[in-house]
Design a binder for these strands. Structure first.
Length: 586
RNA sequence: CUGCCCAUAGCUCAGCUGGAUAGAGCAACGGCCUUCUAAGCCGUAGGUCGCAGGUUCGACUCCUGCUGGGCAGGCCA
């Protein structure tokens, strides 16, 4: 409908202004009904560029419009707007379009926009996902679905940080709990992982390996500086430094004492965390095509190779014993270390390798969904890509802001440090998957989110999830009451429709493909959630305005049910983008 | 100190890459169930779009400055 109008306008403009090339024609659905079904300000824009009177230009565009089946009238209004009113048949044509192929509505040919990778969540596999990861998961999954519908070939990826110190700390933490369970008592380091899941993994180690990993306390502590005493005359900074040094020494000691056993514990702990994470996300309706291992970049030599390439291109230099990347030459605010004084690569080094690997896959676009606290990291990654000769504009990094939980109007206190964070699993258990998925995308992603648990769990009309789902359930309830064959609805006489609320609802339905396109362009799944609320509102309003089933008028009944059924189909389609179910009964 | 994000109705937030009289949900007030699910609908009221300039036919939208809040600035990840 919209594209047809665009064609009409394009041909009219070509005739009215033969020498003018028009790239894009803005067509909007006016808020006010008396401004028609569609309006365009194109005459205002072209008048400016060509030094013409806007209203006169609008008139000549109008006069040049080719005849059309769909246009009832075209009016010039205000300073030079062109307002189009559609014929009734054109307004309701969308109903048969939806009924003919519900799954195809709003869908572009798969891959027609190109290929895109969405990397999201990518949390360290060092503990359960919490509510912050949940937002990244809900956003990334919904965005991926949205992009797929809009015609992108989408690759969903989770980057597993399975190399590096954090994994070592988790491994040591598990081992220390294991030793505890075997009566080897050591003070548990405050910077170790405190959660209960660590003890659970330790028990699993005992079941599988018995006492194979038991060592004496004095052996374990050999070579460590010990933990700083709380009463010691050290300032906070020095105490923290010693705590970290103690952890590093513990890791070193554990590797020495355990030999091959270290690798066994490390890999079992990792496997445990990844499978737990995967299961958690699957229950949340979030599935990945690829779990990409950071460690694999080291194993394949990719990290060393990419650093060598930067070296060859002359973008590295030595300073204070470390290897620096000259990122400031490519837009970063300062240079960054890629290889430490001790020879170990930084996280940044493997990240360069990872992004280089991504860029070698031949994807048209690459999205990294990151927590907003990582925004300072973007310039250095782009700098590395540019330095390697890539087109860094292919990389886009949507940022996801923080989540605060509220229960009964009070903020739920969370602190990652003390291990007091609410897990995604706990949130799902409290609110259910549908409410959680919907609430997460109810806010623009770059805006901090206050998640109202009381509202999400309330079975009241305040709850937007139920509001939308209820509209869908009502349609199916009526269809059941009617009892006819749903397949017949496609053959209904839609000419019988035409009340104000019916027109409004049909317009809402017709808007879906436009909303999908725009939301995909903006990387904004929240637009889908807002649209669904509006679509549901239009439906509920119509539902209350008149009964659908009129026993003495079977044809009218059929036409109305066709409209109702197409509403339900679009609601289902939209909800599925967000990973929310569309129940037939509530 | 520097960079990024945010500021819209009493509250929580939309506002379609510059358009017509700035929208929705809560909360407030007044109505609608012997009829397809009231988890619903209809109506009333509520605004100097943080402040001050600038760009132009036209600004919530773009630019500059200011105020107020969030985040980030490691040889951590």
């Amino acid at each position: 409908m919209k594209t047809e109008l665009e064609h009409l306008l394009r041909s009219a403009i070509a005739q009215a202004l033969p020498n003018c090339s028009v790239s894009e024609i803005p067509l909007e659905r006016p808020r006010q009904a008396d401004h028609g079904d569609f309006a365009t300000s194109i005459a205002l824009q072209l008048a400016k560029a060509n030094g013409l009177n806007p209203r006169q230009l609008a008139q000549s565009i109008k006069d040049s419009l080719p005849p059309s089946e769909i246009v009832e009238s075209c009016d010039i209004a205000g300073p030079g707007f062109l307002n189009f009113k559609l014929r009734s048949a054109a307004r309701f044509a969308v109903v048969s379009q939806v009924l003919d192929a519900p799954e195809q509505f709003g869908r572009h040919l798969a891959g027609s926009k190109g290929s895109i990778q969405v990397e999201f969540v990518s949390s360290n596999p060092t503990g359960p996902l919490h509510v912050g990861h949940g937002r990244g998961a809900a956003f990334g999954a919904s965005l991926s679905n949205l992009l797929a519908l809009a015609g992108w070939k989408v690759q969903r990826e989770y980057y597993v940080n399975d190399a590096g110190r954090q994994m070592d700390i988790l491994t040591v933490s598990t081992w220390l709990r294991y030793l505890e369970q075997h009566q080897i008592l050591l003070e548990f380091p405050p910077n170790g992982y405190q959660g209960d899941y660590v003890g659970v993994m330790a028990q699993a180690l005992s079941r599988k390996h018995g006492e194979a990993f038991v060592r004496t306390a004095s052996d374990v502590l050999t070579g460590t500086p010990g933990l700083p005493l709380t009463s010691a005359a050290l300032d906070d900074k020095a105490r923290e430094a010693q705590t970290e040094a103690h952890m590093d020494a513990l890791i070193h000691s554990a590797k020495q004492l355990l030999g091959a056993g270290w690798g066994i514990i490390h890999s079992e702990v990792l496997e445990d965390q990844i499978s737990d994470c995967r299961a958690d996300l699957e229950e949340f309706g979030v599935v990945f095509d690829c779990w990409f291992s950071e460690q694999s970049l080291y194993d394949s030599g990719r990290v060393a190779q990419v650093i060598a390439r930067l070296q060859e291109r002359g973008h590295l230099y030595l300073k204070d014993g470390a290897v620096w990347f000259k990122s400031s030459a490519f837009g970063d605010e300062k240079d960054r270390v890629v290889q430490r004084e001790n020879g170990i690569y930084t996280y940044f080094a493997s990240d360069i390798a990872y992004h280089d690997e991504k860029f070698s896959r031949g994807l048209d676009r690459i999205l990294n969904v990151w927590g907003a606290d990582h925004h300072g990291y973007i310039p250095r990654v782009k700098a590395a890509l540019i330095a390697l000769g890539h087109d860094a504009n292919r990389l886009v990094v949507p940022l996801v802001q923080f989540v605060s939980l509220f229960r009964n109007g009070e903020k739920v206190q969370m602190s990652t440090r003390k291990g007091q964070f609410v897990t995604l699993r706990a949130l799902r258990e409290e609110t259910g998957r549908d409410a959680a998925r919907f609430f997460y995308v109810l806010r623009k992603s770059d805006q901090a989110l206050d998640f109202d648990l009381s509202l999400a769990t309330s079975e009241s009309n305040d709850n937007p999830v139920y509001y939308v789902q209820y509209a869908h359930a009502r349609v199916h309830s009526v269809l059941t009451r009617w009892g006819g064959d749903v397949q017949d609805l496609a053959k209904s006489d839609l000419g019988l429709l035409g009340t104000e609320s019916e027109i409004l609802l049909a317009q809402q339905i017709a808007r879906f493909p436009e909303v999908v396109d725009q939301a995909a362009l903006d990387l904004a799944p929240h637009s889908i959630a807002f649209y669904l609320k509006e679509l549901a509102a239009s439906f509920h309003s119509w539902y209350n305005s008149a009964p659908f089933i009129v026993s003495e008028q079977p044809e009218l009944t059929r036409a109305r049910l066709a409209l109702a059924y197409s509403s339900a189909a679009v609601l289902r389609q939209g909800l599925s983008l967000l990973g929310v179910s569309a129940p037939n009964q509530m």
